[in-house]
Lab assay of single mutants.
Amino acid sequence: EEWMVEKALMVRTGLGARQIESYRQGAWIEGVHFKRVSPSGESTLRGTTWYNYPEINKFIR
């Protein structure tokens, strides 16, 4: 699984929702560690946020 939603990321990493938000707003790079995608497939600020687990795992190492 490369891309996953927040709940799956929480299960895989043990991070809480606030921790994920903090990383997203600070250290993680949009387009690398996470992306927002609307149902139409376009990038957007209001779409579902998807997280790239392999890239996040590399960051944590």
Rank of each mutant, 00 (worst) to 15 (best):
E1Y: 09
E1W: 09
E1F: 08
E1C: 10
E1D: 12
E2P: 06
E2N: 08
E2F: 08
E2V: 13
W3N: 00
W3M: 01
W3C: 02
W3S: 01
W3L: 01
M4I: 15
M4R: 00
V5L: 15
V5N: 15
V5M: 15
E6P: 04
E6S: 05
E6G: 06
E6D: 05
K7R: 10
K7E: 15
K7W: 12
K7C: 13
K7H: 12
A8D: 15
A8E: 15
A8L: 12
L9G: 00
M10L: 05
M10W: 04
M10D: 02
V11R: 13
V11K: 13
V11Q: 14
R12K: 12
R12P: 02
R12V: 10
R12G: 03
R12W: 08
T13M: 06
T13G: 02
T13W: 02
T13L: 07
T13I: 05
T13F: 05
G14Q: 05
G14P: 02
G14C: 06
G14A: 04
L15R: 00
L15I: 04
L15F: 05
L15H: 01
L15S: 01
G16Q: 12
G16Y: 07
A17H: 12
R18N: 11
R18I: 10
R18W: 13
Q19T: 06
Q19M: 08
Q19E: 14
I20T: 02
I20R: 00
I20W: 02
I20A: 01
I20F: 03
I20G: 01
I20M: 04
I20P: 00
I20Y: 01
I20H: 01
E21Y: 08
E21M: 08
E21W: 10
E21H: 09
E21Q: 10
E21L: 08
S22E: 15
S22F: 15
Y23Q: 03
Y23F: 11
Y23E: 02
Y23G: 03
R24C: 12
R24F: 04
R24K: 11
Q25F: 07
Q25P: 02
G26V: 08
G26C: 13
A27Q: 11
A27W: 09
W28H: 01
W28Q: 01
W28L: 02
W28N: 01
I29K: 09
I29H: 05
E30D: 06
E30L: 06
E30Y: 08
E30I: 05
G31N: 07
G31S: 04
G31A: 03
G31Y: 05
V32F: 07
V32D: 02
V32Y: 05
V32S: 03
V32M: 05
H33I: 02
H33R: 01
H33P: 01
H33A: 00
H33L: 02
H33S: 00
H33V: 01
F34W: 14
F34K: 01
F34I: 03
F34Y: 12
F34R: 00
F34Q: 01
K35E: 04
K35D: 03
K35R: 09
K35M: 10
K35G: 03
R36K: 12
R36M: 14
R36P: 05
R36D: 11
V37R: 06
V37L: 09
V37I: 11
V37A: 09
V37Y: 08
V37W: 07
S38Q: 12
S38W: 12
S38G: 13
P39K: 08
P39V: 14
P39C: 11
P39I: 13
P39S: 12
S40V: 12
S40A: 12
S40N: 12
S40H: 11
G41K: 08
G41N: 10
G41V: 08
G41I: 08
G41F: 08
G41P: 10
E42G: 11
E42L: 08
E42S: 10
S43M: 09
S43L: 09
S43R: 06
S43Y: 05
S43F: 06
S43V: 11
T44G: 14
L45W: 07
L45F: 07
L45D: 15
R46V: 14
R46E: 15
R46C: 12
R46T: 14
G47D: 13
G47C: 11
G47R: 07
T48C: 08
T48P: 06
T48R: 07
T48K: 07
T48S: 07
T49K: 03
T49H: 09
T49D: 05
T49P: 05
W50A: 04
W50F: 12
W50E: 05
Y51R: 00
Y51E: 00
Y51I: 01
N52S: 05
N52P: 00
Y53P: 01
Y53F: 12
P54R: 09
P54S: 11
P54Y: 12
P54Q: 10
E55Y: 03
E55F: 03
E55R: 05
E55S: 05
E55P: 04
I56H: 00
I56S: 01
I56L: 02
I56Q: 00
N57S: 14
N57L: 15
N57T: 14
N57W: 14
N57V: 15
K58Q: 07
K58C: 06
K58I: 08
F59M: 06
F59D: 03
I60T: 04
I60W: 04
I60Y: 04
I60V: 06
I60M: 13
R61N: 14
R61V: 13
